[in-house]
Simulated assay, not measured.
Amino acid sequence: MVTMLDVAKKAGVSKSTVSRILSGNAVVSEQAKQAVYKAIEETGYRPNLLARQLATKKTSYIGFVMTNVLYNGPYFSTIVYNAASFSERNGYQLILADGKHSAQEERDAINFLLDMKCAGIVVYPSFLNEDEMADIIESSETPIVVINRHQTSHPECAFVTDHYQSAVQMMEYIISQGHKEIGFIQGVEGSASGECRFAAYRDVLAKHHIAYREDWVSAGHWLPEGGYQATKQLFAQGQQVSAILAGNDEMAFGAMKALYEMGYKIPEDVSIAGFDNISMSNYVTPTLTTVSIPFDRMLQKGILYLIGEQQQSQDLDLNCELIIRNSVASRHA
């Protein structure tokens, strides 16, 4: 392996001179710089940037913890793209750590990033509860923020939208189009956003004096296949819903496929809507009515907070937006 000493010998300078040139703190002649750069190119030397930054107790890394349960699909890719692009825009490199399948593994991922001396850490917790996250935030000298989850004791460190209110808005829209027989496809048990959407579903039904029916609710586990199976199950039981609200767009896509296979027209026979406004929702037929969730701004606010740009962070709002497209039809005569 090529070392800094090899570069110094080839360039005819001291090892400390090479180190200073690479750190940008060198007061040396242009001739010496060019000799070092040429030696690096000829030897193929790759400086150990992490070791150098760890030695100064300062890195240009932003850590991001997320469970691999969410890795598969456009939802994950959109989130990671935004986290990486906002980190890069501010001169930082994103490091992704897998939270895997338990609170302890999420904690291990956070500890890994702390050991890497990241400048700050973004956590999208799936297993650590609010109190556990509060303990981690309070015990760490490294700034840590949470996205898409409330943090009552540290609200300044939590960047979340109002999932309940956005689901209320969607349900009110569906009912305003004349629908009363509305099915619901849930995500997974324990999901904070999923529970908010389901609570809104039930509350809006009650507000309009529409009876809640357990047999109109099924679990889709956030996946297209889950939405497909949930819809097949719903109609196999002889249900006659006129609309289906899926807890996310991916389950809505699966539900659409199931409806087409069973011979139903969308939205003429059955209307459908989702949440997230992922890119494909504008390219399916019919285009999907959904709620745009501001994950890009959650991440942007979180990263700005981590790097000390609190004022810029405060200027960004985290409101959701109802996106009305073609998948919900009016049943008014």
Rank of each mutant, 00 (worst) to 15 (best):
Y212P: 07
L223M: 14
G247N: 14
D269M: 11
Q310L: 06
Q93S: 15
V204T: 13
I175H: 04
S77R: 06
M251Y: 01
R52L: 07
I244M: 00
Q233Y: 01
G220A: 11
I182W: 00
E88W: 08
I185K: 01
Y212G: 05
G91V: 13
D98G: 02
V13N: 11
E41S: 09
Q165V: 05
N111P: 00
H179A: 00
N248R: 04
T285N: 13
L54E: 06
T67E: 08
Y75R: 03
E42W: 05
D269I: 10
Y305K: 13
A51F: 09
D108F: 10
A51V: 08
E181N: 12
Y81H: 14
S102Q: 11
N90T: 02
V2M: 11
L299P: 06
P155W: 02
T161C: 09
K207V: 03
L322F: 09
L22P: 01
A333R: 13
V65G: 03
Q312K: 15
R297I: 06
T152V: 12
M116V: 03
W222G: 09
I324Q: 14
A11Y: 05
S191L: 06
E105V: 07
R325K: 15
S191F: 03
G63A: 13
L70F: 15
T17I: 06
I182M: 00
L223E: 13
L96K: 07
E321Y: 08
E268P: 01
L22T: 10
V217W: 01
S153Y: 04
G308C: 12
G63N: 09
F64Q: 09
E130Y: 07
D131E: 15
Q300C: 12
Q300I: 01
D315K: 14
Q240I: 05
P47H: 10
I244A: 00
L288A: 11
G274P: 00
S176P: 00
H179I: 02
A167R: 10
A158T: 11
I244F: 00
C157S: 14
I266V: 15
C196F: 03
Y45I: 07
Q34T: 09
I95G: 05
E321N: 11
E195A: 05
F253P: 02
Y61R: 10
S60N: 15
H332P: 03
A192G: 04
D6R: 04
R197T: 02
A51Y: 09
S77L: 14
A55K: 15
M1Y: 09
I121K: 05
L245I: 15
A199L: 10
I144V: 14
V13F: 03
T67C: 13
F127P: 01
P74N: 07
T152K: 11
Y124H: 13
A97T: 11
I175E: 04
T59V: 11
A51H: 07
S16V: 10
W222Q: 03
E181V: 07
N82R: 09
Y264H: 15
S193E: 10
A333S: 12
F198A: 04
S191M: 04
A246K: 00
Q237C: 09
Q31P: 05
D269C: 10
N25C: 02
